[in-house]
Design a protein around this nucleic acid. Structure first.
Lengths: 140, 140
DNA sequence: ATAAGGCTTCCAGTAACTGGAGGGTCAAGA
DNA sequence: TCTTGACCCTCCAGTTACTGGAAGCCTTAT
């Protein structure tokens, strides 16, 4: 199977597959003409990484997960540990974004959005943001 | 005021302030010895950008906001438009992350995390993820 | 005189690709 | 047989918003 077929089979782009090889994540065999060749085993690994990336795991996490994937004697605790950390990062990011969302939506709601220059968003950005946030915080 | 003092006054690092100058975001005056000089007006602009960045606005958004900040005849609609778009992006990201969080926490909860190799997380990554997601979706 | 600190510029690296240039390879149709 | 189009190859640059570090000047205090 050439790289284009592997790409179709995995949902990754050829570029991305070459990139993964360049960072020693997933190696491919080569034909005489220099073309990369992919077996079913290669495709399974690529799909594995594609799914892990889709869940937001970093390439480094993928590297670790891939090595556990191929380790018959792995402890599920190692896998869980990686996933748990990633989950906590995601939860942290959600909390951060929700904070921003609170502050921003408050500002946006109070902006007339017309031809006049007066603007609570600008007021917030030019120095009254903490006060605004404090007000929002009080409401909850 | 030298760059170090401007840094302390704004909460930005000297490096970052120099970077903002290098991308033509906020220019500084120069002394005879080549040192940058900052006035109160400079510091206000720097703080403005620092707050906007803190709310997650991109540098390009900051550029636009800064120009509106200095425009006495701006229409608040322009500001609101930028903020609204940004807010929508944030809400989109929150939704994405919550999706990941659902799927991941489901997988993590069902992993024993012991010495044995059996692992629902690995199962998910190696091909049963969609089924797992579907199950999670059904629960809600 | 020298040492400590602050200032300067410039280069490289970060994460994970993506786009594009320039150029081989292969199979099918005229 | 030639050519066309669809592949494939490598290498370089660009993306975001900085951050770290090297090499070297300026200033102030001891």
């Amino acid at each position: 199977m050439n790289i284009g077929d592997a790409a179709k089979a995995t949902g990754l782009s050829s570029k991305t597959i070459r990139y993964y090889e360049s960072i020693d994540l997933i190696a491919a065999d080569r034909q005489e003409n220099g073309y990369r060749t992919y077996t079913d085993a290669h495709v399974h690994k690529l799909r594995f990484v594609q799914r892990a990336r889709g869940l937001g795991f970093s390439i480094d996490d993928c590297r670790a997960l891939l090595s556990l994937y191929q380790d018959k004697h792995r402890a599920s605790a190692e896998v869980k540990n990686i996933a748990q950390k990633h989950l906590e990062e995601i939860e942290g990011k959600i909390a951060e974004l929700q904070d921003l969302q609170q502050t921003l939506s408050h500002l946006v709601e109070h902006c007339a959005g017309d031809h006049r220059p007066d603007c609570p968003i600008m007021d917030g950005l030019s120095g009254e943001l903490h006060e605004a946030s404090a007000k929002v915080a009080k409401l909850h």
